[in-house]
């Protein structure tokens, strides 16, 4: 069974009356790394939010099906959703500055999901958190555990966010522009880290980006989104080599040549 199966998802926001997602179909297999690319405003984040159950029913009209492990996220009762998705989906957002609560110690935030979804004792949680922090390459985990977010660099913060998302070993990691706010060297390190986590734990990754070259580093398959629809999908290298859609061609042309041949 596919991990995620989205069928004809449509999202219309009440506030604007605009349909931001206009019939998206998408499948993510367990352990698959899928890139979702498209220009700003094409509906990538909205699609991911619908998948993660973050779209508030009150603010938008949703239709279609969003199956996560066979359960329809759009219709399933809230409590049930929380029990499947909390431990099943982790999210890494674009802005590491706002992804962590500024008033809570880093270690405590890495543990949070364990506190909510497992019966582990405080010591066991701490152990797991430190382990996760080592895996994401945070220096001196014992020390970092006690720090507050503002005491970390942007790259370290993003690592902490990744640690907090993966500490429970979710089935799917949604990364919404996880590296856009970081400088290039850190960007590459983070992408490598995500790949190693995915391979090691069999975590599927949905990587959202407007940058095809970022997707290419991490994902074996890609879906191209344009104005609320998916216009092209396939194996990343195939799409790169012979884009079928006009918009995809333009996206590829927009990548600086140096990067294109990396």
């Amino acid at each position: 069974m596919a991990l995620v199966e989205i069928r004809d998802l449509r999202v219309r926001f009440h506030s604007t009356g605009k349909e931001a997602v206009r019939g998206v179909d998408m499948t993510i297999e367990p352990g698959q790394r899928l890139g979702l690319v498209g220009e700003s405003g094409s509906g990538k984040t909205v699609t991911a939010m619908a998948l993660s159950g973050l779209l508030q029913r009150g603010s938008a009209a949703l239709s279609g099906q969003v199956l996560f492990q066979g359960r329809d996220v759009l219709t399933c009762p809230r409590e049930e959703l929380r029990a499947i998705q909390g431990p099943g989906i982790g999210v890494v957002f674009q802005e590491p500055m706002t992804s962590l609560n500024p008033l809570i110690r880093v270690g405590c935030q890495v543990e949070e999901v364990l506190r909510l979804h497992t019966d582990l004792t405080a010591d066991q949680r701490r152990e797991r958190a430190l382990e996760a922090m080592v895996q994401v390459g945070l220096p001196e985990p014992e020390v970092t555990y006690e720090k507050y977010p503002h005491q970390l660099s942007g790259g370290q913060r993003q690592r902490a966010v990744i640690a907090s998302a993966m500490v429970i070993h979710p089935k799917l990691l949604i990364c919404d522009e996880p590296t856009t706010a970081l400088d290039v060297t850190v960007q590459i390190q983070i992408l490598r880290l995500l790949k190693s986590i995915s391979v090691r734990y069999g975590v599927a990754i949905l990587l959202i980006s407007h940058d095809l070259s970022v997707v290419r580093r991490l994902c074996e398959s890609v879906a191209v989104m344009y104005r609320g629809r998916i216009v092209e999908r396939g194996n990343t290298e195939d799409v790169f080599a012979s884009p079928q859609d006009d918009y995809t061609r333009r996206l590829i042309a927009a990548i600086p040549t140096r990067k294109r041949h990396e």
Binding site: G53, R82, G86, E95, N101, L103, E112, L116, V161
Partner: peptide, 26 residues
Amino acid sequence: SLDYVRSARLMGAGDMRVLFRHILPN
């Protein structure tokens, strides 16, 4: 609408926990 609140909700923190533990102190 900040990401840290969204991720707390996503992790399955209940509304009251999100409001009192995360938002109000901030």
